[in-house]
Simulated assay, not measured.
Amino acid sequence: MKQVKTALLSYGMSGKIFHAPFLTLHPGFILMGAWERSKDLIRQDYPDVKRYTSLEEVLADDVDLVVVNTPVDTHYEYAKKVLEAGKHALVEKAFTTTAAEAEELDRLAKEKGVKLTVYQNRRWDSDFKTVKKIADSGVLGEIVEAEIRFDRYNPNLSPKAWKEGENFGAGILKDLGPHIIDQALTLFGYPDAVFADIRTEREGSKVDDNINLYLYYPGLRVRLHSGFFNREQLPGFVLQGRKGSFFKDRADIQEDVLKTGAKPNLDNWGAEPEEKSGVLHTEIDGEVVRKTIPTEKGNYYGIFDGVYKAITEDAAEPVTAQDGVNIMKIIDAAIASSEQKKVIDL
């Protein structure tokens, strides 16, 4: 099996929780190390890897793939250097800070003949996989209305300056927003227009922390919401079709389990509690039924396996750069819509 030598550009929560465990689980990857500016945390977990002290040191090494998992406002600069060095790149969300930056990275990757993937891992959540299975099955008939939420209750400001500072990558629209936008585009495709209301609700906050987006499709409206004042949370997914409805809590367990230090596997990983099953209420063969739907297993291994096949078999990336461009176009349009208080045609 061909080995893809991989380096991380940081080893905070993202590197420790979302990337390193799956890179070391997949037999096709070799974790080479991480760029750490002052600490040497990665070698506490993986003693045989390297601690890089600069991006230049990473790019000078015999590395095939670089994971750009640094703050959002650095993604464009770092990913561009990675691509110019002829390395493949896996870039965390938000892909960039603007659609123009995303389009430039897409162009550069094609020019260099390397693979560029956006890390939209929530496509591999158990809840979303279940929702997509129901939507694709046609059991609801034509879907006329949908809502996707990613809510939390956390009125406190983050101690991480890059999350709360006045920079182009900060704010909930570019933090949780890319997840729900990508899930909407995966289900329904690219919309015709966007309307958005972007607000700041937490005391002392300098960034947006409550978003409502409406995506307009022929015969379909999709509402996206994310905020920090949701102690009692509504269903994460609501699909309303001409024949019936499907409701599903956002209940994927992978992040919480990974935070305990547990390592992922390919057997019993990502199974939600049975009580979090979605509810289907629809008409099947002329009979109205209301029942719970078993949840699909989630596993972020899928995105890494897709990246591996893209690099070694020239398959399409599991989340393409064009997917990332489309998400950033929605974000750009949402900002313009909220500022101008009008619907923005795409």
Rank of each mutant, 00 (worst) to 15 (best):
K2M: 09
Q3P: 08
Q3E: 07
L8Q: 02
F18I: 00
H19E: 15
A20V: 00
T24W: 03
L25G: 05
R43T: 13
S54H: 08
E56D: 11
V58H: 10
V58S: 05
L59N: 14
D62M: 03
V66C: 11
P71L: 01
T74F: 07
Y78G: 00
V82T: 08
G86D: 06
E104W: 01
E104R: 03
K115R: 14
L116W: 03
F128G: 04
I134V: 12
D136Y: 01
G138D: 02
E142N: 12
I143F: 09
E145P: 03
S158F: 08
K160W: 12
K160E: 13
K163G: 13
G165H: 04
T186C: 10
A193L: 09
R199S: 10
T200R: 13
V207W: 03
D208H: 04
I211H: 07
L215P: 07
L220M: 10
R223M: 08
F229A: 11
F229D: 10
Q233N: 10
Q233R: 12
L239V: 05
K248E: 11
I253Q: 12
Q254M: 08
D256Q: 11
D267H: 13
N268K: 10
N268Q: 07
G278L: 01
E283A: 05
E287G: 14
V288L: 11
T292W: 12
F304V: 01
G306V: 01
G306T: 02
K309G: 09
T312R: 09
E313T: 06
A316K: 07
Q322A: 14
M328K: 01
K329S: 03
A334Q: 04
K341S: 14
K342C: 13
I344A: 14
D345R: 14
